[in-house]
Design a protein around this nucleic acid. Structure first.
Lengths: 216, 216
DNA sequence: GCCGAACCGTACCGTACGGTTCCGTTCATT
DNA sequence: AATGAACGGAACCGTACGGTACGGTTCGGC
């Protein structure tokens, strides 16, 4: 029986520390390797060399390679923070600005090399194992963001600024208007066009169209 | 120097036969293996066994494993056919029906297990090699569809049914409204909800919103 | 100053898989 | 019937990598 692997399925999403500082440093190295060279660049020997730790420690901390990958995903997810939304529905203009800021932050996260590398990793493994990484990314990433967005949109509806039946549906439309097919194209290795790199105006346009569909 | 690999970079996108019947059978087996078990399930030995051919033939036909993967992508791309659009802008109603049919076909392709497996494969390899598969999928898949869509939308504009400045931009919005985040969620291994499986009504809703943004 | 836990570095093992080679068979052409 | 290209089948090799074991070192607690 090996040492206890890092089992993400049983860990609470809000567990705060989760990794020791030393482990976080190692995970950051792992993330760097992943971003630079894709999954195949992240070997246990390579990580041990890069992070100046022993393979034995890696296996002690994370159980096996899958546990390491899960830990990397969990670690990165814990790093992503969206701006707070305190008092964001004061009036129509600030609420709309807040929605725009949310979309811009969403674009910033999804189009970052780190997020792309992690998505590529999870997708590449999504039909091999029992799909742990994909679920992990969805639960700790997308679903969290989606919940955040729904409360924001519902707040707008309560204040009479937006009109829709299903908050999830409305959020999906906002997502689609903002992301379009850029995400999948970036995942496939295409470079973003200059216009697509201007996240602020991309968010602006998306929110404009969103208001034309769901504005009160 | 090995035998000439299948070099997709130099082959014309409209080259018709491209693979012998025997090779197509083998590629279909490869596709099945990919859909069932992901990339790691497609080994040269496994494919040779499944397709009752020799590894020597595989290497003779496709050069190396990368050539095989590229051939699988090219083969599948050649299989996808969209409905013709002859006389589709006769009047407003039939044009809109045609747009809806296009969106439904797009959803049908993108959400098929075959397409998902190929996208997973290409994405998984997108930062290892010089990114051949990703480019291949983009060029033979997305860009072809995008071109088709643009001519369709521009035809609608010429007939005064739609209003937009940039056809590419309009198509991207249509894509976003239809796909939202379903594609990435499926790629990550999540199952589509019953509503998301009803491609017809999904397409209907998307086109409805599209017309509210771009209808003349 | 001693002890044990944690850890680094490295050597090692087993295996899976890409790629090569050889041989026997089939089959079309002459 | 003879011949040779095309191909199936199987054995083989090299290597990369996951995983393990072990000796040596650092460091905090008593």
């Amino acid at each position: 029986m090996p040492a206890a692997a890092y089992d993400i399925a049983t860990s609470r999403p809000d567990a705060a520390p989760e990794f020791s500082p030393r482990q976080q440093v190692v995970l950051q190295h792992a993330l760097t390797l992943l971003v630079e060279g894709g999954e195949k660049a992240l070997t246990t020997a390579g990580l041990a060399r890069t992070a100046s730790c022993s393979k034995e420690s890696l296996y002690k901390w994370f159980g096996d390679r899958d546990g390491l990958l899960a830990a990397v995903v969990a670690y990165q997810a814990s790093q992503v923070q969206f701006p707070s939304e305190t008092g964001a529905t004061a009036d129509a203009a600030t609420f709309r600005a807040h929605v725009t800021a949310f979309v811009e932050a969403l674009l910033g996260v999804l189009f970052s090399e780190t997020s792309l590398a992690l998505n590529r990793l999870s997708i590449g493994q999504s039909n091999t194992n029992s799909n742990r990484l994909g679920h992990l990314l969805l639960v700790r990433g997308k679903h969290m963001i989606s919940a955040r967005a729904r409360t924001m949109l519902e707040s707008g509806r309560r204040h009479g600024l937006l009109k829709f039946d299903d908050a999830e549906d409305a959020y999906q439309v906002l997502y689609g208007l903002a992301i379009r097919d850029v995400h999948i194209r970036l995942l496939l290795g295409e470079n973003a066009s200059p216009a697509e790199k201007d996240l602020a105006s991309q968010a602006e346009t998306a929110v404009d169209r969103f208001y034309r569909l769901f504005g009160a």
